[in-house]
């Protein structure tokens, strides 16, 4: 259970990090919090030749509120964000972060690392998708900004090229009339979820202007659906939403079952959580109009 030998680089700038990654010709990996990467190395499931540690890069520990939202740099730890007053402007972060592993993991794990790792059962990728967060990426060919729903392309796969660095993610701040819901079911607290949902409902003049849900642990990546029409058609009570969510489940949940829960079980789980959390988001949205 010891990592195979690797070379270590700790650059001081993003440009140096990109250069260091490029130098390895695809044999390098970014090391952020290490909470997903180090277990992989320890189990010898991967043996990259070089790790590029991004924790000391100037500016990457930046946490700032801009006109577009809360910008979280690649070195910002999950636990810091959990307790950051500015993060209350993005309520879903406070709702989801306590479920990301354990306290002892969040003290090192980064928000961007969780997105880049793209575990299908991870909470933060679903939060990013539900909010349509934007991800800033830098590589040898320059910078690009990718909307979260386009970032995830499969299980532990993203649009990042091997020499690209995710430098920051920007989460839009909650607007007036917006309410949110979050729920997951896991075997133990801190485990990856069997199924989970993130919901966002915007209410204007008592009417549902927008309703979005993102599910995780149910497919090879977060599944995002605009459900505005469904909610408008069926109402905003949990009971009324349960049926349409059951219909939806077959489309959303395509993970194969495993020892922890069959596909059918996960579909029921999804439908129950989605109905409940859409209703909860609507209630909260109505209160903040």
């Amino acid at each position: 259970m010891k990592a195979a030998p690797f070379a270590y680089v700790r650059p001081a700038t993003v440009a140096d990090a990109v250069a260091a990654l490029a130098e390895t010709g695809g044999d390098g990996k970014v090391l952020a919090g290490g909470q997903s990467l180090v277990p992989v190395l320890a189990m010898r499931l991967g043996r990259p030749g070089t790790l590029v540690d991004v924790n000391a890069i100037a500016g990457l520990d930046e946490l700032a509120t801009t006109d577009v939202g809360l910008r979280v740099g690649a070195a910002v730890r999950q636990r810091r964000l959990e307790h950051e007053p500015a993060a209350r402007a993005v309520p879903l972060l406070g709702m989801a972060l306590p479920f990301v592993g354990h306290r002892e993991l969040r003290s090192r794990g980064t928000v961007c690392g969780s997105l880049a790792h793209a575990d299908p059962a991870a909470e933060l990728p679903a939060v990013a998708c539900c909010l349509n967060a934007t991800l800033d990426v830098t590589g040898r060919r320059g910078n690009r900004t990718v909307p979260a729903p386009e970032f995830f392309t499969g299980a532990m796969t993203t649009v990042l090229e091997p020499d690209e660095l995710l430098t920051a993610v920007t989460f839009p701040l909650a607007r007036a009339g917006e309410g949110f819901g979050f729920a997951e079911v896991a075997r133990r607290h801190g485990d990856f979820a069997l199924a989970g949902v993130v919901t966002r409902v915007r209410v204007t003049d008592g009417v549902v202007a927008e309703a979005v849900l993102a599910a995780f642990g149910v497919s090879d990546r977060p599944v995002v659906r605009d459900v505005t029409d469904v909610v408008r058609a069926h109402g905003t009570e949990t009971g009324a939403l349960r049926d349409p969510m059951n219909q939806f489940a077959a489309d959303v949940v395509d993970t194969a079952g495993d020892a922890h829960g069959s596909t059918a079980y996960r579909r029921r789980l999804f439908a129950a959580l989605a109905a409940r959390e859409l209703a909860a988001a609507y209630r909260k949205g109505s209160e903040t109009q």
Partner: peptide, 11 residues
Amino acid sequence: AARSCLLFAVQ
């Protein structure tokens, strides 16, 4: 608190 098995000393 952090897991010392998931941190390299060099970090």
